[in-house]
């Protein structure tokens, strides 16, 4: 489904990703853990081509989406449309469009990008918002919604493009603790439906429950990966043990 080979990304002199190899099967939920600054978010942004990698290959359903910077100039050389209509990304800061209602946030891209008729987009948007428990908030503007509700709108917005893979970038980190569960439940529901997902998170319990595999990243490399029980309970690497120890002290 998704395969990364030797992906590297540099910001100026700072090498943020130092050669990442990762494979995600169809229907699999991969949770990425790691300290801040370890490159987790950058990795997701590479897969979405918001930050195209400098080296390495990313194969999405068998197709190489990075033709490489030497193949041309500007973003035209990347398979942007192919990727963005197959990969959904949900951000830590929600990034809802504040001048549009919840439903318009969800229908905008299907109408503009996929040319869906307005009625069809609205029906689908209503269904998605209902699925994340927001049937009564269709016409609210984002500023009138709680953080948890906003994040669920953002999830519905990404789903409206019928993505094959969903990426979640610390989607509960900006939320008050009591709002975390409602967002995690929405993601849990998606995993039950068989959605392929890569979830960057600090929620160890969620990674254990929902993750098929846990990947621990530090300093731009994957330190170890494996089934949640193995990585979380019997980590092989010292760095992983240290990080998990710090997480449990919280």
């Amino acid at each position: 489904m998704l395969r990364l080979q030797g992906v590297r990304k540099r910001f100026g002199h700072l090498e943020v990703l130092k050669g990442i190899d990762l494979e995600v099967e169809k229907g699999e939920v991969v949770c990425i853990l790691g300290p801040s600054g370890s490159g987790k978010s950058t990795l997701l942004r590479c897969i979405n081509l918001l930050e195209p990698p400098e080296e390495g290959r990313i194969l999405l359903e068998g197709r190489d989406i990075c033709k490489g910077p030497e193949s041309g100039t500007g973003e035209e050389s990347w398979e942007l449309n192919y990727v963005r209509q197959r990969v959904g990304l949900v951000f830590q800061q929600f990034n809802l469009f504040p001048h549009r209602t919840a439903l318009e946030n969800v229908t905008m891209a299907p109408e503009r990008v996929l040319d869906r008729p307005k009625a069809e987009a609205r029906a689908k948007g209503t269904e998605l918002l209902t699925r994340v428990g927001l049937a009564d908030k269709l016409d609210e503007y984002p500023e009138r919604l709680s953080g948890g509700q906003q994040q669920r709108v953002a999830i519905a917005r990404a789903l409206a493009m019928d993505p094959h893979v969903m990426l979640f970038d610390e989607v509960t980190s900006a939320l008050d603790p009591e709002l975390v569960k409602e967002v995690l439940d929405a993601i849990r529901e998606l995993s039950r439906e068989g959605m392929t997902m890569v979830v960057v998170t600090h929620e160890l319990g969620f990674a254990r429950d929902v993750g098929d595999r846990v990947v621990f990243m530090d300093d731009g490399v994957i330190v170890e990966e494996g089934p949640p029980a193995q990585v979380l309970d019997e980590p092989r690497e010292e760095r992983t043990r240290k990080f998990l120890g710090l997480m449990l002290e919280r």
């Binding site: 951000f91 800061q93 469009f97 891209a109 503009r112 990008v113």
Partner: peptide, 30 residues
């Protein structure tokens, strides 16, 4: 207009000009 707005629009498959027209400029004008 926060950079996340353009990123969110682009990540949904909108082109630069679509994102400008439907997301960034309406907020900027306000």
């Amino acid at each position: 207009v926060p950079g996340g707005q353009m990123e969110a629009a682009r990540s949904l498959g909108m082109s630069h000009s679509q994102a400008m027209r439907h997301v960034v400029v309406p907020q900027a004008v306000r």
